[in-house]
Design a protein around this nucleic acid. Sequence first.
DNA 1: TCTTACTATAGGGAATAGCTATAGTCGCTA
DNA 2: TAGCGACTATAGCTATTCCCTATAGTAAGA
Lengths: 301, 301
Amino acid sequence: MTLTELRYIVALAQEGNFSRAAEFCSVSQPTLSVAIARLEDEFGVQLFERGKGFVSPSAVGHKVVEQAKRALGEAEKVRQVAMLGRDQLEGPLRLGVIHTIGPYLLPQLIHSLKVVAPAMPLAIEENMTATLADMLHDNEVDVVIIALPFDVPGVLTRAIYDESFKVVVPRGHPWESREWIAPEDVAGDEVLLLKAGNCFRDQVLGACPQVSSPETDVRLGHSIGTIRCMVASGLGVSVLPDSALGHPYSNDMISVIPFKEPAPARRVALAWRPGFVRPKAIEALLDAVRGLRSPAYRLLV
Amino acid sequence: MTLTELRYIVALAQEGNFSRAAEFCSVSQPTLSVAIARLEDEFGVQLFERGKGFVSPSAVGHKVVEQAKRALGEAEKVRQVAMLGRDQLEGPLRLGVIHTIGPYLLPQLIHSLKVVAPAMPLAIEENMTATLADMLHDNEVDVVIIALPFDVPGVLTRAIYDESFKVVVPRGHPWESREWIAPEDVAGDEVLLLKAGNCFRDQVLGACPQVSSPETDVRLGHSIGTIRCMVASGLGVSVLPDSALGHPYSNDMISVIPFKEPAPARRVALAWRPGFVRPKAIEALLDAVRGLRSPAYRLLV
DNA sequence: TCTTACTATAGGGAATAGCTATAGTCGCTA
DNA sequence: TAGCGACTATAGCTATTCCCTATAGTAAGA
């Protein structure tokens, strides 16, 4: 049984005549004749009654033809479903992003993406780097935005921008009047950090080796927002990425002081599986990155 | 697009691996590989993402596969409708049956069925009720034998027999000399049960409310056979269906004691889709049930 | 670096679906 | 009843398709 044979029996039932049915199917009459006979032989049932001057479906044949129409309809839908999916920029893209990037980058990125891929909404998964690596590998997200290094075997990465770190102190802090601060100056235990697992925490510890890894929970924040509040309330100072400090996140309880050049920074990248079937979606994301306007992002694309 | 190609993509989605999918379809791996590529080319869409160690449908591919399943199902119905015009008692019947019935009922049932429908072999799928419900719905089996209640929308059921529960104790157990046992007597944590998911477990818990739902794995068996062995080894007592206790399953390590009348029982039924094209096959099954001779089955047909 | 597991490609052979030509069948008409 | 017209079935051939084996390519793990 083939789809072609099903088309033949439907046509024959419709035309009531081998020759016309053959013409309808754009094949020769013997072709159709043989195909019908073959199908009847396969089923072991006579589907059509050949009378004088007419061909009409048998009782079984009638039911078979009706069912064949349904089957052909469903088969045609397969093609339609496939055709609908041809545009790689249509349909949701599953994007993973780390906590210290998502809330600051995504509002702008989504805005920018709407221009280049208006029919591609983002399904966003915010999590930590290690979890996102697993999700990428397990095909639970399509693309992730993380800070380098991101050494996951079998994954492609592309750096999209660099972002400086800045020192954040409460209003009235002795450092407030300084023009810059050297990484070595950031030291001791009044430095507030993210909890373990956040890659940004490790980057700060790498950039400022004098910072002691804290023992108490008091100095650890769950998110950059929390850290900001803790700084504002006078608990200590901290180091935060540039993008987390811009409008509308500024307030007048904290002061932001740049590092001495070359300032510590992190490199942010896209990552995806090499076999990902929508490369144009990646390109669209890169285009959207190119559309970013904030000076916090030193674009690499 | 051909039906064969649709079968290939369904198999590939199911197996997640070209080689296994090819084996499943009884073709060589290159054949399947080429066919998939051809179909993707025809549709102009990548249906599968080839990664290292995995092959998974793309977003489009997933939808296409789902639709392909429907199309294949309808196409298969064409064949079934055609077969309906032949002898409905010819050709394999796909029968699903739960674990706690299959091994005990089927040997007799098949024997009995050979008389009324010698040309209708059974393709047997043994599984748990919930899985069988899905398989029935998805047209992966034609008929199932389960214990009531079986409330699946769009499915017809017909009770075929009742079957009592009996208490099983190891030789030497204090209950061995009793003529009967009340359901309330079966209590505490020395009662061995099937693991969760088996409907018979829930029926026992319903019939004997004093049985505590066990916390440890020690008291849980994978099958009735396992439970019998655990009872025989002295781990505890249990409640089993009558049919699982007859010859040739008896041994002299356990004793079987009936419940006090009215003994707890389960009602076993056939279930099938209302549109199933071989109603005579159902009738033949019922006839086969009527031919059962074991006293464990209190026939309802 | 070698091995292993997997997918893609190449090339050839068998099956098949299509074609044209023609035979067979039935009813009608001369 | 012979011939004709309208139709379907059969025969014989060809081009295509389908599937096979063998092998190359590739990435990950030992």
